[in-house]
Design a protein around this nucleic acid. Structure first.
Lengths: 244, 244
DNA sequence: GAGTGGTCTAGACCACAGA
DNA sequence: CTGTGGTCTAGACCACTCT
């Protein structure tokens, strides 16, 4: 086994980690075919069964997908909504409308105590804030703040965020970092003033309740790298999560 | 292979299904040890590796858990909150307080169109409604309506629901049915009058926003068997979901 | 030391996709 | 037909738990 560098990890875990790095490094773009299980086994000095187990875990993690008789392929980077969708309340089987993303701005500020703790940073550590607006049929339905540790994503350019596939896509493409959701919190709140104006909920209308989402995401090594806060208008739509 | 009854299913799937039935049937109570992989392999006429694969999937599904060097055990039935917890907003690592369950009542009515469709029933099919209140430190924090197809759970007795481990525990115990969450929807709503009074949100206080949860659950064969509607007071707590 | 789950291999055969 | 992923077996060794 050419791989084994004396780490006391099972071989299939080492294979998995190695492939993870190569995927994150951009060796295979979305829908590119990986080498066959036998080729990988040969190349990495493991048996086909061991490679298979590693690939299976990467498929389960959403990094790859398989097609019987054809091969194993790199999965596209998930969008900022992940598995969640906005659907009509009560209709679980509905086909979701795609949401249009609008990049509002990139700013910097310092972490509050909560956020610093969640992201395992020191107090007042510098953060990047990426603000995005989501529209459905032209009407604003959600507002999003992604907070990232500034040091981990030095040089992040606002221009990258305008046309791209969202925050997760940009981070994967520019920094080789693939995020996955660790935990989500849901609350009902009265929509704050600033968010209300950005979402186009104006003046006359009585106060509006909004779904407030907090999300903590981490890279594949488990380091927390994103705190996201999202306000959703849910008087007509419901935030829908499908389970495994 | 004594198992193979000409179904064109992989052997490990057959083993999995067979074990699933035996678990649901109550052959092993929570934390009972299953026979070893070798014993099961022998008994079922498959190899240890095949049994292992079936067990792994059942562990992933939450029906079993393993302890290295000790054995494989039946997992306890999940409570009505599943993987979700009520935590302080922003604190993802917090240890949750246990919630006290209070059974409010069992009633019957007929399915609305939405619910009938979701549960794959005809319009106006008879339903059982199980209403429960959840308290934290004595204060009401959530109100719960579980809607079940009356025909599937004929004879369900309100007394079973008073002392037990909740709806899912009762269904497992009395009907050998194990439910898992298929999909959840979240919305922010102003708390309706009836629910407000049951949650002890009274008079003077201005209208309160509440987190409204819709959940669809199914048995292990994928038949949808529960529609749950839950109102959570989230001015102090957040509905928290950890992801795999 | 005996018994359990955890990893790994080598080889076999099947089912499916595509030239 | 070849090449791919999907299943299955038999046997080996390791790591852990308990007596």
């Amino acid at each position: 086994m050419t791989v084994n560098t004396l780490k006391r990890q099972p071989l299939y875990v080492q294979v998995k980690q190695l492939l993870q790095q190569r995927i994150a490094g951009g060796e295979w773009q979305a829908h590119d075919a990986l080498p066959s299980e036998w080729e990988l086994a040969d190349e990495l000095g493991a048996s086909q069964g061991t490679v298979r187990k590693a690939l299976t875990e990467l498929v389960d993690a959403g990094l790859l997908y398989r097609q019987q008789g054809r091969g194993t392929y790199a999965a596209p980077v998930p969008g900022d909504w992940g598995e969640a969708r906005l659907l009509t309340p009560g209709l679980f089987a509905e086909q979701p409308d795609e949401l249009a993303r609008e990049f509002l701005g990139l700013s910097r500020f310092n972490a509050s105590e909560d956020i610093a703790e969640a992201l395992q940073l020191r107090r007042l550590a510098p953060l990047l804030r990426i603000r995005q607006l989501w529209r459905r049929h032209g009407a604003p339905v959600a507002l999003d703040d992604a907070l990232l540790p500034a040091e981990a994503f030095d040089g992040l350019d606002a221009r990258w965020l305008r046309g791209s596939a969202g925050v997760y896509g940009t981070l994967q493409q520019r920094y080789g970092v693939r995020l996955h959701v660790v935990s989500e919190q849901f609350r009902a709140e009265m929509l704050p003033r600033e968010e209300a104006s950005l979402l186009g909920v104006t003046g006359m209308v009585a106060d509006v309740p909004a779904l407030c989402l907090l999300r903590l995401s981490a890279d594949m090594q488990g380091r927390p790298l994103e705190w996201r806060q999202r306000y959703c208008l849910t008087h007509q739509l419901a935030y829908t999560v499908k389970h495994g």
